[in-house]
Structures are given as structure tokens and as C-alpha cells.
């Protein structure tokens, strides 16, 4: 219960960061927070519901791997965008508009 509350709080802080920040790097940082909250949840739920199994940890490990890949690509994109537009503020970039 305590872990769940902790992870929910961490997740909410991450959402807040993602929604309020204008800088793309800051947004990615918020996403990292959210991913960490999720990992905490995985481990805690697994440990209490099935104490003799390690599936939750394995899952958390995969989440870490995917997060690393995501961070890698995300920052590469940010650098690419910065080179093309000389800015990283997402509000100023609206080329996805129709």
C-alpha cells in the first residue's frame, strides 16, 4: 500500500513535469520519472502478491531497457530538432500540424 501510494505520487509528479514544461529535455525527464514509478509498482506488487516469483523484477528490467532505448532515441531527436530549428521548446515546434 505504501509503495503504491509512493509510486502514484512519483507518477503524478512526472505527469506534472511533462505537461507544464516547455523544454523537450525537461519533458523527457518527466517521462523518466513516470517510468521509475512504474518500475517501483512492478517490484512491489510482485513481491507482495507472489513472493516466490521474480516476474515483476524481470519486467522492470525490460522496462529499464526500453526506457534506455527511448532516452537514446529521444535525445537524438532533440539534437536533430535543435540543429534544424535552433530551439527545443515544444510550443514553438508545430510541424505536426495539418
Amino acid at each position: 500500500m505504501h509503495y503504491l501510494v509512493l509510486s502514484a505520487l512519483l507518477f503524478s509528479i512526472g505527469i506534472y513535469g511533462v505537461l507544464t514544461r516547455r523544454n523537450a529535455i525537461a519533458i523527457l525527464m518527466g517521462i523518466e520519472l513516470m517510468l521509475n514509478a512504474v518500475n517501483l509498482n512492478f517490484v512491489a506488487v510482485c513481491a507482495s502478491l507472489t513472493p516466490n516469483q521474480i516476474t515483476g523484477q524481470i519486467f522492470a528490467a525490460f522496462v529499464i531497457v526500453v526506457a534506455a532505448a527511448e532516452a537514446c532515441i529521444g535525445f537524438a531527436l532533440i539534437i536533430a530538432i535543435y540543429r534544424n530549428f535552433a530551439k527545443v521548446n515544444v510550443d514553438d515546434i508545430n510541424i505536426m500540424r495539418w
Binding site: 501510494v5 502514484a8 505520487l9 507518477f11 503524478s12 509528479i13 505527469i15 506534472y16 511533462v18 505537461l19 507544464t20 514544461r21 516547455r22 523544454n23 525537461a26 510550443d91
Partner: peptide, 21 residues
Amino acid sequence: LVSRGVSIGISAAICFLGIAL
């Protein structure tokens, strides 16, 4: 660093927290 949509962000976060809890 902070954009104008602070209120939206806060409300969204609190809303989510409430739902989650």
C-alpha cells in the same frame, strides 16, 4: 522553463492522483 499551461498540468496531476488513490 515553465509554459503557460501550469493550471492544466496541476489539475491533470491532482485528478490522476485522486483517481489512482
